[in-house]
Write a protein that binds this DNA or RNA. Structure first.
Lengths: 209, 209
DNA sequence: TGTACATCAGTGAACGCGCGTTCACTGATGTAC
DNA sequence: TGTACATCAGTGAACGCGCGTTCACTGATGTAC
């Protein structure tokens, strides 16, 4: 207990500083917001000298990418869960959307970092493209489950894109004051998200095929 | 021509420094990206001392808000134009979306600032709420033009929200590499945007009423 | 029309700050023999 | 099992930097008389 930061008497060698730095960054992000995130602050939060992170990350950007990657993994999980628990494939489309927006609401700063780094790279993270386990492919496959023709690849991609963009847009505006009365009228934030997706009629999209 | 920055021999009193600072900020944003935007850089770009902006803006935040406000005005205009030029009200819903995303594509950094400040305030800019001329209201009224029941206020708001969120989402992801093959297949970026909105079936939403 | 003076809109130097990163270093660990 | 030594993962001081903002100032403008 000789160190004010760490609960345990921290050994000279940390054990898993990489992990600890990512966690510290996540904590700081949610507590102070993205603009407050400096490498020095992360090191401070992890109870380590400002130079220590350089043994685990090339630079600040690489740490941020790691945080974003962690976020995408969590989001993948939330989407998979929503899909698995939905009563019908058509429901699953809405419920995946709800889960997506809820994730963004619960981790707003990490969500922001996820998209900031994605925008910088002008691409979804690697996992989304070739990876059949990616969240993007899960959404696409849910359209197929709901009756979309798997052979009409282009239509399928457009549907998936449309659904994904809607969810992202809603995630970014979810906290706007202008929506408060809708949330109240519908009985809560989650109900509001669900109503928007139902209104979009994602399930109806597959009927066009 | 004694000053390297300004083309004219600049008088001691600028004339309209407020305007010039907003323009300089917009220029810098698009040229260098949002992270490069400092008050000092804006003053430099405008050919003025670092302290000069403080006669026109309380602080950096107030300048950014002014830039964002300018952006919203431009976006309003683009939406009004798209609505006016569309062949039918149903088309207008798609074309407003296309115009929206194109605006974001043409002014990516300003668009980002617009939403960053909006998110910080947790609200659309003032114009969107009570103001019947706001872009948001224009979209809502286009749904009515297209056949939505103006008395079902809640449904109407949900439709407008759904459309708006879709457009924002697409705007933020428009440049992702993963969409390149769709753009190519469809014959260009604008065609891709249009296809996504058609796929969303915004016009079909009003048919549910 | 002329002049005194208040006000306005700039200047440029300075402040303290936290940042990302580098450096020479040192303590801890693990491995070859 | 012990020991020499290479390697690893930290330290903490220092670097230069650009930032937002403040300050006392000064040149330009406009207005009252």
């Amino acid at each position: 207990m000789r160190d004010s930061q760490a609960a345990e008497a921290r050994p000279y060698h940390h054990g898993d500083l990489r992990r600890a730095l990512i966690d510290a960054a996540s904590r700081l992000l949610e507590a102070e917001g993205p603009s407050a995130l400096s490498l020095r602050a992360v090191a401070r939060e992890a109870g380590v000298s400002p130079a220590a992170p350089y043994h685990h990350f090339k630079d600040k950007g690489e740490l941020l990418e790691a945080v974003a990657g962690e976020g995408w993994t969590l989001l993948d999980g939330a989407i998979a869960k929503a899909r698995a628990e939905a009563a019908t494939p058509a429901d699953a489309l809405d419920e995946i959307g709800v889960a997506y927006v809820c994730f963004a609401r619960e981790n707003p700063a990490i969500y922001r970092v996820m998209y900031d780094t994605a925008r910088d790279k002008e691409a979804f993270p690697d996992g989304m493209e070739g990876n059949e386990d990616s969240a993007y492919c899960k959404v696409r496959d849910t359209f197929i489950d709901a009756g979309a023709n798997p052979n009409e690849v282009q239509e399928l991609e457009l549907s998936t894109t449309a659904a994904w963009c809607s969810a992202h847009g809603l995630a970014e505006m979810a906290n706007f004051k202008q929506f408060q009365h809708l949330k109240d009228a519908l009985g809560g934030e989650t109900a509001f998200f669900r109503a928007v997706f139902k209104r979009l009629g994602l399930a109806a999209i597959r009927a066009q095929d």
